[in-house]
């Protein structure tokens, strides 16, 4: 633990982290944590806004601009990416945990994630952002 603390104190964790030799496995590790915390933050916001429905239709509807505003639709694309990546990458981790032989094919499995993720993300981005241009 002492060694860990030294690393964190001396370095800039994010920059050091990106230089780490882990390549795909390490980048997905960082992204898994970042998307997890990001989706958690949205979940807290979402619980709060749904809680406000108890204050009646007028109050609730007037607050919904926070989700229909243009910048909110762009954040929605990030939410879709975050949830999808976390789900697919989490599934890969679970499968690798229970079928240890698959660790040898980690890089290939990560590229499968990318291939599954990109078309759904493209479709979602179109659905979320097209109302802004109509």
């Amino acid at each position: 633990m002492t060694e860990l603390r030294t690393v964190y104190r001396r370095g800039r964790p994010v920059l050091e982290g990106l230089r780490y030799r882990g390549r795909e496995g390490f980048y997905t590790w960082i992204l898994h944590r970042a998307t997890g915390l990001g989706v958690l933050f949205f979940l807290l916001l979402h619980i709060f806004d749904i809680f406000l429905i108890g204050f009646g239709a007028e109050t609730f509807n007037s607050l919904l601009v926070i989700y229909t505003a243009p910048w909110a639709r762009i954040m929605e694309v990030f939410l879709l990416f975050g949830l999808l990546f976390h789900a697919l990458n989490g599934l890969r981790i679970i499968v690798q945990d229970f079928v240890p032989g698959l660790w040898r094919y980690e890089r290939q499995l990560i590229w499968v994630e990318v291939v599954v993720l990109l078309p759904i993300l493209a479709w979602g981005t179109y659905v979320f952002l097209s109302p802004l241009f109509s």
């Binding site: 429905i53 009646g56 239709a57 609730f60 509807n61 919904l64 989700y67 229909t68 909110a72 639709r73 929605e76 879709l80 479709w123 979602g124 659905v127 979320f128 109302p131």
Partner: peptide, 13 residues
């Protein structure tokens, strides 16, 4: 909620 219904269509009702 986001792809089928759409956020712009969600309100109290």
């Amino acid at each position: 909620m986001h792809m089928v219904i759409g956020v712009e269509n969600i309100d109290f009702s």
